[in-house]
């Protein structure tokens, strides 16, 4: 079980989450102005690294929040979590840290 630190609920098993995918894909802000190539990139192209990967999961069986997760795809180790808009590689992370989450799996 991968254990993901939901910014709200704390450490939970990944079976409570639904995997959405590559978090680095930005939906074109101005849809009409985006080129076909930009749309293709957003919808079809994936970063798919071997190692740290920023991805979105939804805590679908919990608080239903979308969570950005930095996870090593080689080891499944979760390195950081935050809100969808956080850039976890830059070291920034969500306002709601796990300290305030009391009911997580961790005792």
């Amino acid at each position: 079980m991968i254990r993901i630190n939901c910014p709200y609920c704390g450490l939970r098993g990944h079976d409570e989450f639904s995997y959405i995918g590559d978090a680095t894909k930005q939906r074109p802000a101005s849809p009409a102005d985006a080129t076909a190539a930009e749309w293709h990139d957003f919808v079809y192209i994936r970063d798919n690294p071997r190692g740290p990967h920023q991805e979105i999961w939804q805590h679908i069986q919990g608080c239903r929040a979308f969570v950005r997760v930095l996870r090593n795809t080689l080891t499944h180790e979760v390195l950081a979590t935050g809100l969808p808009q956080d850039d976890l590689l830059a070291g920034a992370s969500g306002p709601a840290k796990t300290e305030e989450a009391k009911t997580g799996e961790a005792s």
């Binding site: 079980m1 609920c9 939970r12 098993g13 079976d15 409570e16 069986q61 919990g62 608080c63 009391k102 009911t103 997580g104 799996e105 961790a106 005792s107």
Partner: peptide, 19 residues
């Protein structure tokens, strides 16, 4: 369910959504 239900860990006043 897979949360920590130990009497020390899940105390009155706590709630959780899980499977």
């Amino acid at each position: 369910a897979g949360l920590d239900w130990h009497v020390r860990a899940f105390t009155p006043g706590m709630c959780a959504q899980t499977t």
